[in-house]
Design a protein around this nucleic acid. Structure first.
Lengths: 154, 154
DNA sequence: CTTTCTGCAAACTCTTTGCACTCGT
DNA sequence: ACGAGTGCAAAGAGTTTGCAGAAAG
């Protein structure tokens, strides 16, 4: 039952590790296909699962949305923008030691926790505050909207 | 486009509000059927959705498990026992004001957040620590608190 | 009456799986 | 060669939806 180094497994890992946008399994599949054209979605799922089990990748579960994958292993939280669907990493927002200890005292064994914030990201907020009223503000800075991760199906 | 007060809607609300175990949609359907035998799962889903949208109920999204519903509206977190599948309410473990404010300063608009701990609950831990000479598998799913109702469907 | 809601079943989305074949080791 | 891994397609789980008929206002 030894794990083999296949081109598919390596490609899946590489894609997620290199991504900054928390891709879904389908996103990963699309990207991996640039290297391994014939890889199937099933294989992508199997390999993502394996890498998550081996703690080489993390799965990010979001309300009502497909699971996304993250190459960042350090403890951190997430922010999901409900406008554009992008997911941002947040530097360990919660002082987990404090919270977990209370649970421990209550007899719980905490193995993991997930903290996710839902709302509107800075980019979408800015985009929203402009459209209404007469364009009075001559604020010109409009940071690239490129950060928006594709999240839904076309 | 006015919302009507139907027996089904009321029953769905009542079941979730009275429940202490964070039932799934299927659990809710089974229970509501004791009052409204012919209610369909589709109607249960539609009503749960409506009640959540109206903030009368909350949806609890868990990693790799079906959504569960909660009648407790006060801010609180959850603990999912990976052994027995039970979900426990945790009294506002996180001091959210602190965390959210930092996000606000960064330009995020936080509309909600979800904090869930995963691990083993006190009951399962006790059962485990008083071994009868058997090791444990990481596999589980036992309706210790009544939540895993399986119903056959064609 | 008018409009929303319901039951049913089919459709959908995301994910997993069985099987024969392929490719690491 | 052996068997874990792959591709494909089909199956599964969970949830949504189209429609004709039921029922709330």
């Amino acid at each position: 039952m030894k794990s083999r180094r296949t081109r598919q497994l390596a490609a899946v890992y590489d894609v997620v590790a290199a991504a900054h946008d928390h891709p879904t399994a389908e996103d990963v599949c699309d990207r991996v296909r640039r290297q391994v054209p014939r890889i199937s979605l099933g294989t992508v799922y199997r390999n993502l699962q394996k890498l998550v089990a081996q703690q080489q990748l993390r799965a990010v579960h979001l309300a009502d949305r497909p699971t996304r994958y993250d190459g960042m292993l350090a403890a951190h939280d997430h922010f999901l923008c409900e406008r554009c669907g992008s997911v941002a990493d947040l530097q360990q927002t919660m002082p987990s030691p404090m919270d977990s200890s209370r649970l421990l005292e209550s007899g719980y064994e905490v193995r993991a926790h997930a903290l996710t914030f839902y709302g509107v990201c800075p980019t979408c907020r800015r985009a929203e505050e402009k459209p209404l009223g007469r364009a009075r503000r001559t604020r010109s800075e409009e940071p690239a909207t490129a950060s928006a991760t594709r999240s839904g199906r076309p």
